[in-house]
Design a protein around this nucleic acid. Structure first.
Lengths: 352, 352
DNA sequence: TTGCGCTGAACAAACGATTGCTTTATCGTA
DNA sequence: TACGATAAAGCAATCGTTTGTTCAGCGCAA
């Protein structure tokens, strides 16, 4: 068992509180230089580290954050987590990771357990619109930040990208390539990303004077399998689209696979655009045209906002919105892959 | 602030300990049926959850585990983490995640911080041979399990695959395809996976009566960039190999990219085998032939072993070794990709 | 009536650290 | 000589639970 303050106090023949004051550099009380030195030496040689649990009880602060996401094996969320950890570590926080697999029940039970553990704050990337769990967080006054997806507009501190704009840029790209029948795999309309990207897509079509065919807009969920299934539906239509904008890269990948199974060539017969620019997107053949968002930055910014919220103790809602950026690859423009791929490898070498 | 035992006690006009006994179903003391019922009703309506920090202090157990890995954005470690979480959650544990980026210093500092937080146990997937951090864990008697990589043979509870066998199988595959000059990207020889897979590779070559050219065996590290760099070295030799066995899939991917940059076709000019079968491996074009290990199972088994170690309190070392399995794809056999890919998609549909 | 056994619940001591408030020296000064 | 200021360190309460021990009250038998 690690050494305690009381044991140290016995060794040094002083009161535990004195040790605590030296260890914490307590400015409210001065310590005689010689005892201070004696105690500091003792602290060093015993490698004393205060019991974090006891400390947490007394200080009512655990220096633990939690990240709640659907699934860390999805590269998007893995990158997000790294951002959070990188942002939190320098401020002395460790980070718990909870996967919900998209289940509201699992999310709720995770949140309750985290609350019972008295984590200092929660970063939630799995919320749906009007999420009861999010309202519960607000009601319990648990410091929290929503990432990527918001729940009730403007009610919580939020970090994300401008999904409306990103969807418009993606759709515009397809329109400018000459596509007139454009399908959309819309995720879920109970999720802000699904709703906003769909809205952006439709707005852009309308702005360009293109007709909107409701049959070409289908909910797909966010999994690869969901994307494939949804793509199958709209690609089996008598008048199938020549392009698809998918709500995420994973959904787009499902669509790509399905297109191939149906004997369609990408991009010649079907152009596909994804969203997020996960690492996998540039690896596919052809590369996936997509909307890049700064995933790692999402996490780091969320951690910063959360910790600010914790230390200041205010519940003022803040919003950090990044600008998305179109990345053109071979899934929309044949031959577009060469340039970017080379550049990427050069960068990889440079960092080693 | 959440309600405390003391506040509940006031409401119910009983002593806090009585509430605690009801909440915990304490068998050591019997409670009158009517008070029990009264208190249980109160517990339900206030949604009382004991303060985990206070509980942790008193019980000397936090129900928190930690996973220490190089980088969760590496799909191998993301899958590993999921395994751990899935194994731990059902037993009431939450899991902290720490990324080391392969730095021994970061690893050490994480470990110390975790110890100060009194996590109940640590799963370490980033250890090197003769790792001082691992010895420190042993010395502090911190329950721990090493995963995938071991440190000092047999000294710690370990979950992994038979790397020697896996490497032999991979090498045998190349030999049976007729390759006689086989290169090996060996990771790092300070890491058990690097050492064992290299040994397996060389043993198999020797068993098959093939000459071993030391110039064809180079340390590559475990990154994609490292794999590319190492591949460049052996592919620039006057008498270059016709096949490469890489210590991991990521390393193999780097080698693939480098091969293409050097104008070599895979598999016609250069066959490549990786290790682990990360999800990405089946997505590449051509698909990557690799040695599959049950990554998720690694994590789940590690969590089980760790929790057993914690609850029983014994430090008996156990070893769980899974059998690796060769997966043949297009990076060694032209045209091998069709079958497996179709099968995979069928499975994906089935699960939705 | 005294005393014993039993039930049901209160008491109190931890767990290990933090921190406002005393207390004890020590010294300077009136 | 005495008194107050000040420096240095001890005291003790507290954070919220858990749990071994004690205690009050009651019924019953001697």
């Amino acid at each position: 068992m690690p050494i305690t303050l009381k044991q140290l106090a016995q060794k040094a023949e002083v009161h535990p509180s004195t040790i605590s004051r030296v260890a914490n550099n307590d400015p409210s009380l001065r310590i005689a230089p010689d005892t201070r030195e004696r105690i500091e030496a003792l602290l060093r040689e015993t490698e004393y580290r205060p019991n974090g649990v006891a400390r947490g009880l007394k200080l009512r602060q655990t220096f633990v954050l939690a990240v709640v996401i659907p699934d860390v094996t999805n590269p998007f969320f893995a990158a997000l987590f790294r951002g959070v950890e990188d942002g939190a570590l320098s401020r002395g926080y460790n980070v718990l990771l909870c996967n919900t697999d998209g289940s509201p029940d699992r999310q709720r039970s995770h949140l309750q357990s985290l609350h019972a553990r008295r984590v200092d704050g929660i970063i939630l990337a799995s919320s749906v619109l009007k999420d009861p769990s999010v309202r519960w967080l607000r009601h319990q006054r648990i410091p929290h930040v929503l990432v990527n997806r918001f729940s009730d507009e403007g009610q919580d501190t939020f970090v994300g990208a401008d999904d409306l704009l990103g969807a418009r840029v993606a759709t515009r790209h397809l329109v400018e390539l000459g596509h007139r029948r454009i399908g959309h795999l819309a995720g879920k309309l109970t999720v802000s990303t699904g709703l906003m990207r769909r809205r952006g897509c439709l707005e852009e079509l309308e702005a360009r004077g293109l007709p909107i065919d409701p049959a070409l807009v289908v909910e797909s969920g966010y999994t690869e399998a969901g994307g494939a299934k949804a793509a199958e539906r709209i690609l089996s239509l008598p008048d199938r689209p020549t392009a698809i904008f998918a709500v995420t890269d994973m959904t787009a990948i499902g669509a790509c696979t399905m297109a191939r199974r149906l004997g369609l060539r990408v991009p010649e017969d079907l152009a596909i655009v994804g969203y997020n620019d996960i690492p996998l997107a540039s690896r596919l053949v052809p590369g996936l045209t997509t909307v890049r968002v700064p995933i790692h930055e999402f996490g780091a910014a969320a951690a910063r906002l959360l910790i600010d919220q914790i230390v200041v103790g205010d519940a003022s809602r803040r919003r950090v919105i990044f600008n998305p950026e179109l990345v053109v690859r071979g899934s929309t423009v044949a031959g577009a892959d060469d340039g970017p791929l080379r550049a990427q490898h050069a960068a990889a070498f440079a960092t080693e």
